[in-house]
C-alpha cells in the first residue's frame, strides 16, 4: 500500500494542475467579455478563478461550494448537501439490501434446482448486456400513477440494478468448488445442507465481495437516475438536475463529488467487511 502513496499523490497533483489549467482556458472567453476595457490579461486570468457560473469551476471553488453546502446549513435543510446525499444514500441502501437478500436467495435456488438454472440463467446473463437503467423513468412514472412516490420507486430501481451482479456473482461462487473438493464431501456422504454450509458458502465468499462492490455502485447510480424524471426535490440526482437547469456548475460538481464520496464510502464499508473476513481466514478468501 505504501509504495502506492507517492505515485498516487503525484498523479493527483497533476490532475489538480491540469484542472486549474482547464479552468483558465475554458473560462477565459467569458471572463474577457465580462472584464472592463482596461483589464490586463492577468486580471482576466485571475477572474477565471472566481466566476459565478464558470464553464469549469476551479478546484478551490468546488471545494468551497462543497464545504458550504455540507457544513453551513443544518443537515435537515434542503440547502444542505448532506441532506440530499442522505436521501439518495438511503434509497440506494434500501434497494441494495433487498438485492442482497433476493440475489443470494436466487443464486442458491439456481445452484440447487436444475429447472431454475435452465430457465433463468440465460436471462440473468443477458440482462447484464441490456441497459437496464433505461427503465428508470418508466418505473418512476408508473409507480407515481398508482400513488407510490419518494423512496420506494428509487429503492426499487436501485435494487433491480444491483440484483443481477449479486446473483451472478453468487452463482459463480457457489459453483466454484473444484471436483476434488466436492468428491471429498461425497466420500463423507455429506448431506446437501452440509455441502452448502461447509463448502459452497465459504467458497463463494471470494466471489461475493467483488460483485457487492459493483452492485453498490449500481445501486447508487440507480437511485440518482431515478431522481431525474420527476424532477425530484431531494437527492443528489435532483441537485444535478437543478444545477443543470440553472447553470449552477459549482452545485453540479459538488453533487458529483458527494456522489463519488458516497460510492467510496460504500466500497469502503464492503472492503471493511472483506478485510474482517480475510483476517478470520488468515489472509486469504
Amino acid at each position: 500500500m505504501r509504495h502506492h502513496a507517492v505515485p498516487v499523490l503525484v498523479v493527483l497533483a497533476v490532475v489538480v494542475v491540469l484542472w486549474y489549467a482547464g479552468a483558465l482556458l475554458l473560462n477565459f472567453d467569458v471572463a474577457r467579455n465580462l472584464a472592463d476595457e482596461n483589464a490586463t490579461t492577468w486580471d482576466i486570468a485571475a477572474a477565471t478563478m472566481s466566476q459565478g457560473r464558470p464553464v469549469l469551476p476551479a478546484p478551490h471553488q468546488v471545494a468551497t461550494e462543497l464545504f458550504e453546502s455540507v457544513f453551513m446549513h443544518p443537515v435537515n435543510s434542503p440547502k444542505s448537501l448532506v441532506y440530499h446525499a442522505a436521501v439518495t444514500a438511503f434509497a440506494a441502501g434500501v434497494g441494495f439490501v433487498f438485492a442482497f437478500v433476493l440475489g443470494i436467495a436466487l443464486a442458491i435456488g439456481i445452484v440447487h434446482v436444475r429447472t431454475l438454472e435452465r430457465s433463468l440463467m440465460l436471462w440473468i446473463i443477458t440482462s447484464q448486456t441490456v441497459p437496464v437503467l433505461a427503465i428508470a423513468p418508466m418505473v418512476v412514472v408508473v409507480l407515481g400513477n398508482v400513488g407510490l412516490t419518494g423512496l420506494l420507486p428509487k429503492a426499487l430501481i436501485a435494487g433491480y440494478l444491483s440484483f443481477f451482479p449479486i446473483s451472478t456473482g453468487m452463482v459463480k461462487g457457489l459453483r466454484s468448488p473444484d471436483p476434488m473438493q466436492r468428491d471429498l464431501m461425497r466420500t463423507y456422504s455429506a448431506s446437501g445442507a452440509q455441502v452448502f454450509r461447509k463448502l459452497r458458502w465459504p467458497a463463494a465468499m471470494a466471489f461475493l465481495f467483488p460483485s457487492l462492490k459493483v452492485a453498490a455502485t449500481l445501486a447508487l447510480v440507480g437511485a440518482i437516475v431515478a431522481e431525474l424524471p420527476t424532477g425530484a426535490q431531494a437527492g443528489l440526482g435532483a441537485r444535478l438536475l437543478t444545477g443543470s437547469y440553472y447553470g449552477q456548475t459549482q452545485q453540479i460538481w459538488a453533487a458529483l463529488i458527494m456522489a463519488s464520496l458516497l460510492a467510496l464510502l460504500a466500497v469502503g464499508v464492503i472492503d471493511g467487511a472483506r478485510l474482517a473476513m480475510l483476517r478470520a481466514r488468515g489472509g486469504r478468501l
Binding site: 475554458l26 462492490k213 447508487l220 444535478l240 443543470s244 456548475t249 460510492a263 467510496l264
Partner: peptide, 14 residues
C-alpha cells in the same frame, strides 16, 4: 466505482 453518468449535465453544458 464512481457514478460517472453524473457528469452528463456538465457535458451537456460543454
Amino acid at each position: 466505482a464512481m457514478p460517472i453518468v453524473g457528469i452528463a449535465p456538465i457535458m451537456v453544458m460543454w
